[in-house]
């Protein structure tokens, strides 16, 4: 066995670093981070009838002077106009309430799955993941047929004799809640499940042995230990729902104006790119806090792993 030229193992490490870190970093920097800089830049521009439809932020005027024009108009508009303000408030409200609803429905489900017999658990979990793989758009669409005034739900309720005339559900805030909870429930259940299966059942037995009744055991052992899962699940629901477009557009009505839809309208219908950018920036600013919270808890969850 001949000994080849000595080489420090460090050399392959450097190469591995360069490829594994460098390439994805470069991609994300170029196509994820850089765009935000441009959005910020354009949010400070004025709309114009041009291609692209905004004024340049800086231009060279004669004698080589650089002229920079910053326009805070868009942000002032977002802050002052009650339309935008109420859209933001409504988005936050929908996100908050539907997160709570997902938690109320998702926690017991995740708990039941996590405590189910091993063989059943795999199937139950699969059934949670499966809808997530089918088209989101189509699943939202399915609710239109169910919720509309001559739809399946109303037919069913009338057939049961519970109501005489059809309820108006489609194009209301209620329909938005149904759609959001329906679409985002798996996002709540999966992290909760991951967390709850790691829970040591011995802890509950120890608590019971020390005189804690089942409810107390749940409140003082299970719930605090599953906090990381609760935060992760809640943020996975809350953050995207704030900017949701498809659900309010298809199921919501005029009362349930959400900022995602507003941004879409400003961009596609009104062709006001700077205003759309300003909306995106404000939305980002609102989402920073929950996002940082999610990151923190995620790291804590990983740190807690053996």
């Amino acid at each position: 066995m001949a000994l080849p030229q000595p080489s420090r193992p460090a050399a392959t490490q450097v190469l591995s670093r360069l490829v594994n870190i460098g390439i994805p970093y470069l991609w994300l920097g170029l196509f994820f981070l850089l765009p935000f800089v441009i959005v910020l830049q354009i949010s400070l521009a004025e709309p114009a009838l041009a291609q692209p439809p905004y004024t340049p932020l800086w231009q060279w005027i004669e004698d080589g002077l650089l002229q920079i024009q910053l326009n805070l108009q868009n942000f002032l508009l977002v802050g002052e106009d009650s339309l935008y303000l109420s859209a933001f408030l409504n988005s936050l409200q929908v996100a908050l309430i539907s997160t709570l609803l997902c938690l109320l429905l998702g926690y017991p489900m995740a708990y039941a799955i996590a405590t189910a017999p091993e063989r059943l658990r795999v199937v139950l979990l699969m059934l949670i993941i499966l809808p997530f793989w089918t088209s989101f758009l189509i699943r939202v669409y399915a609710w239109i047929g169910i919720l509309k005034s001559n739809g399946l739900l109303n037919d069913f309720l009338i057939w049961l004799g519970l109501i005489d005339s059809p309820l108006t559900i489609l194009h209301t805030q209620t329909a938005v809640y149904i759609g959001v909870v329906y679409s985002y429930l798996p996002f709540m259940i999966l992290p909760l499940y991951a967390n709850l299966t790691r829970l040591d059942h011995g802890l509950l037995e120890a608590a019971a042995d020390l005189g804690c009744r089942p409810f107390c055991g749940f409140m003082r052992v299970t719930l605090p230990l599953s906090m990381a899962g609760i935060v992760a699940g809640s943020m996975l629901v809350f953050i995207p729902v704030v900017g949701e477009f498809v659900i309010p557009d298809l199921l919501g009505g005029p009362q349930s104006l959400m900022v995602g839809k507003l941004l879409w309208t400003e961009f596609f219908s009104n062709k006001d790119w700077p205003l759309a950018s300003a909306l995106a920036i404000v939305m980002l600013a609102l989402l920073v806090i929950p996002f940082v919270m999610m990151q923190r808890w995620q790291q804590r969850m990983e740190g807690g792993r053996p």
């Binding site: 000994l3 080489s7 420090r8 193992p9 392959t12």
Partner: peptide, 8 residues
């Protein structure tokens, strides 16, 4: 300085 894969 011999990497693991070339040591006897």
């Amino acid at each position: 300085d011999v990497p693991a894969y070339s040591r006897p």
